[in-house]
Structures are given as C-alpha cells and as structure tokens.
Amino acid sequence: TYYTVKSGDTLNKIAAQYGVSVANLRSWNGISGDLIFVGQKLIVKKG
C-alpha cells in the first residue's frame, strides 16, 4: 500500500493510522529521521 503524505502528517500519525511502528515505516521507506514531505509517497505494509 502507498500513502501520500498530506500537510500536517507525521510519521507517528501515519504509523498509528495503519497500526504499524514508526521504525517499520522508516525501514520500508529508507528514512533515517522524522523528515517527510507533502506529496511524498510512503510504502505502508498493513500491521
């Protein structure tokens, strides 16, 4: 599943929405910090 980042989104918010961990979101998307951008597509695997 792909999720497109919207204004106001955070990794924590997206992780909670999908029932996954922030660590997994980072791993699946090659993100090291907490910086995400509006319009960015993130890979999300269902929890």
Rank of each mutant, 00 (worst) to 15 (best):
T1C: 05
T1E: 12
T1S: 11
T1G: 08
Y2D: 06
Y2G: 06
Y2P: 06
Y2V: 09
Y2M: 09
Y2F: 12
Y2R: 08
Y3W: 04
Y3E: 02
Y3Q: 02
T4Y: 13
T4R: 07
T4M: 10
T4D: 06
T4P: 03
T4S: 10
T4H: 08
T4A: 08
T4G: 04
V5R: 00
V5W: 05
V5T: 05
K6C: 05
K6I: 15
K6E: 15
K6D: 06
K6Y: 04
S7R: 13
S7N: 09
S7A: 09
S7Q: 12
D9S: 02
D9N: 02
D9V: 02
D9W: 01
T10F: 04
T10A: 05
T10E: 06
T10M: 05
T10L: 04
L11Q: 02
L11C: 03
L11F: 05
L11N: 00
L11G: 01
L11K: 00
N12C: 04
N12F: 10
K13W: 15
K13S: 14
K13F: 15
I14L: 08
I14V: 09
I14R: 00
A15R: 02
A15G: 10
A15L: 02
A15K: 02
A15P: 00
A16G: 10
A16E: 11
A16Q: 13
A16V: 14
A16K: 10
A16W: 08
A16Y: 08
A16F: 14
A16L: 15
Q17L: 09
Q17F: 15
Q17T: 15
Y18E: 07
Y18H: 15
V20Q: 09
V20W: 04
V20G: 03
S21R: 05
S21Y: 05
S21M: 06
V22G: 05
V22Y: 04
V22H: 04
V22M: 09
V22W: 03
V22C: 04
A23I: 10
A23S: 08
A23N: 13
A23Q: 15
A23P: 14
A23T: 07
N24R: 09
N24T: 12
N24V: 11
L25H: 00
L25T: 01
L25E: 00
R26Q: 12
R26W: 05
S27F: 09
S27W: 12
S27G: 13
S27H: 10
W28R: 02
N29F: 01
N29E: 00
N29M: 01
N29Y: 01
G30H: 10
G30N: 14
G30S: 14
G30C: 04
G30K: 15
G30I: 10
I31F: 08
I31V: 15
I31G: 03
I31T: 05
I31Q: 04
I31N: 03
I31Y: 03
S32T: 14
S32V: 13
G33I: 06
G33V: 07
G33K: 08
G33C: 04
G33M: 08
D34N: 07
D34G: 07
D34L: 06
D34E: 15
L35Y: 09
L35S: 10
L35F: 15
I36E: 03
I36L: 13
F37P: 05
F37D: 15
F37I: 14
F37S: 09
V38R: 06
V38G: 05
G39W: 03
G39I: 01
G39T: 04
Q40D: 11
Q40F: 04
Q40L: 09
Q40A: 06
K41L: 14
K41M: 12
K41Q: 14
L42H: 00
L42R: 00
L42S: 00
L42G: 00
L42C: 02
I43Q: 09
I43S: 06
V44R: 01
V44H: 02
V44Y: 04
K45T: 12
K45G: 10
K45C: 04
K46A: 13
K46G: 15
K46P: 14
K46N: 13
K46L: 12
G47F: 10
G47Y: 09
